[in-house]
């Protein structure tokens, strides 16, 4: 019987959103448009239009050893070209940001190839070949996994995920990489590591509270869905824990 992933338990909207983000069979809703050049500016790894710096010659130009794994696994575009490994890192507010650290990692593992994600409490980083990164970043920014006010693209100085929002609804950023303009549009004025940009990069309007509550993947009893109310989810975690405890004894299957 073929394994059919279920992408996690739960009856709440939070659980549903988690499954939707993870499931590569579901198309993520595109909420905004950001140009390729703008993505490159925010990432800050190379100047727009410049060639991709490389870590090794393109695979086609170098002798590949006779390796069965290499024959099975098709290299990504970035790997094929010999790109450097670069990163994008997100800080997600606990006040209903649409994606959250582990959720991002799970989602990326299901949807992307050739990646190395790292998950912490205040930030989540994903590393991969540069041209793959730009493609993935576009998806992470343009779709319902992103919100201009509650998600920060921050390579360093990430403090903010656990703080109250500012009066204008923006998550705190010590380096104020993104600002909410009077026109209601959020613009990045610095790249992800905090270097000022020559021109501001617009990433759209912040989503409203209702949308956020309906699209978030974090439980929150004050501003969103209470974890306690998703009984199925809690019971499932208990079940996993109980089974892991029991299987620590290496029981024999009857």
């Amino acid at each position: 019987m073929a394994y059919k992933p279920q992408y996690g338990p739960g009856t709440s909207i939070v659980a549903e959103n988690r499954r939707k983000q993870m499931n590569p069979g579901q198309k993520l809703e595109k909420v905004r448009s950001v140009t390729d050049e703008d993505i490159v500016l925010i990432l800050g790894h190379r100047a727009p239009g410049s060639a991709y710096p490389s870590a090794h010659p393109p695979l086609a130009e170098q002798q590949e050893p006779d390796c069965p794994m290499r024959k099975i696994v098709k290299p990504t575009e970035g790997a094929q070209a010999g790109d450097r490994v670069r990163y994008i890192q997100f800080a997600d507010s606990m006040f209903n940001a649409p994606s959250q650290p582990y959720q991002r990692t799970y989602t990326e593992m299901y949807r992307f190839r050739g990646i190395d994600p790292g998950t912490l409490s205040g930030r989540q980083i994903v590393e991969c070949r540069e041209r793959d990164l730009e493609k993935y970043s576009k998806e992470l920014i343009e779709t319902e996994m992103f919100d201009p006010a509650l998600v920060g693209i921050r390579g360093a100085t990430v403090h903010g995920h656990s703080l109250r929002l500012a009066e204008d609804g923006m998550m705190f950023d010590m380096l104020q990489r993104n600002v909410l303009g009077e026109d209601g549009i959020v613009k990045y004025v610095k790249n992800q590591i905090g270097e000022p940009l020559d021109r501001a990069v617009a990433v759209g309007k912040p989503m409203d509270q209702k949308w956020l509550k309906a699209h978030t993947t974090i439980y929150h009893s004050l501003v969103g869905t209470a974890y306690r109310d998703d009984t199925e989810y809690v019971e499932y975690v208990q079940r996993i824990h109980s089974l892991r405890t029991k299987y620590g004894f290496m029981p024999k299957e009857e």
Binding site: G155, A156, T157, L163, M174, L175, Q176, I193, P196
Partner: peptide
């Protein structure tokens, strides 16, 4: 939370931090 005059750490450490 603090709003430092310069970027305190990370790759851009030491550069001015307009806020």
């Amino acid at each position: 939370p603090g709003l430092p005059k310069k970027v305190p750490y990370g790759p851009a450490r030491g550069s001015p931090n307009p806020h």
